[in-house]
């Protein structure tokens, strides 16, 4: 009896140990999605991740990826197309990638016009049914800006390298970017289609001085929240006028039953 108990216990221990053994690396391996944004005008680049060429001849105002990268620290470098990684234009030797996140790494100009790499964590929270997320990131060598939709400011005084965001009704937004507090259009106008359950991230890039201001954009889908309920019935007929109909039906049936029974009884008595 006691040996049997011990055997059961040891089997249980093995099961627990092996389950834990399987579970922990799987948890650690949850990769992050990493997109790369090119926001430096006039200079196509090659992108190296840990010394390996990952994106070739990457054009300005485009977005590459997403790459699936396991949690860890990465060496990200940008070179002129075809040049050795040792002569990188821009490099971050210790880009931290946490587990299970959605990141965008942008090569862009800072407010003073110097090329830099900035990493953003993308908001992948579920979006309410019928809404879409709009994120605007100021990555241009330009002063503070307002973002307008249909001519009305929706985000104001946005500065490099910051972001603003909102969940908006689905549809097409006619957006432009103006110098903060003015109606001097810096970028746009441009129609931005906002689709349910997607996050559209718009990057304002380039240089005001160099007259190279423009937009890059990426979308993240699969964030659609479902409706909160499905009210697909407004009551049985019996709950309204129909109940009268049912009562009549029941009355007829009972009457019929009584009639039939009487007939049966009478026949039986014969």
């Amino acid at each position: 009896m006691s040996s049997r108990l011990i055997r059961i216990a040891s089997v249980a221990a093995v099961v627990v140990a092996s389950t834990a053994g399987i579970a922990s690396p799987a948890f650690a391996q949850q990769a992050s999605q990493v997109s790369v944004v090119h926001g430096i005008p006039g200079q196509p680049v090659d992108v190296y991740v840990n010394g390996k060429k990952t994106v070739e001849n990457f054009q300005p105002s485009t977005v590459a990826g997403p790459l699936e990268l396991a949690a860890g620290t990465y060496d990200v470098a940008l070179t002129k197309p075809g040049e050795a990684v040792t002569s990188a234009l821009l490099q971050n030797k210790s880009l931290a990638v946490p587990a299970g996140k959605n990141l965008s790494v942008a090569a862009h100009l800072d407010a003073a016009g110097k090329p830099v790499l900035t990493a953003f964590a993308n908001d992948t929270a579920m979006i309410a049914a019928g809404k879409a997320r709009l994120v605007v990131r100021h990555l241009a060598a330009a002063p503070a800006v307002d973002v307008r939709a249909g001519g009305k400011p929706v985000f104001s005084a946005l500065t490099n390298p910051n972001e603003v965001k909102a969940d908006l009704p689905v549809g097409t937004v006619n957006a432009d970017v103006v110098l903060a507090g003015t109606s001097t259009v810096a970028i746009g106008p441009k129609d931005v289609g906002l689709k349910a359950g997607t996050s559209t991230i718009v990057y304002a890039v380039g240089s005001a001085e160099g007259k190279t201001l423009g937009l890059a954009a990426q979308t993240i889908s699969g964030l659609a929240g479902a409706p909160t309920g499905m009210p697909a019935g407004r009551g049985p007929v019996s709950d309204g006028l129909g109940s009268i109909f049912l009562l009549v039906l029941a009355g007829v049936a009972l009457g019929g039953f009584a009639f039939v029974t009487r007939r049966v009884v009478r026949r039986g008595s014969r």
Partner: peptide
């Protein structure tokens, strides 16, 4: 199913086309 390694990286131009 999503690919876990990174053999080729898609590059997108501007906003994704409407479905």
């Amino acid at each position: 199913p999503p690919v876990t390694t990174v053999p080729s990286v898609p590059v997108r131009q501007g906003p994704a086309p409407a479905r």
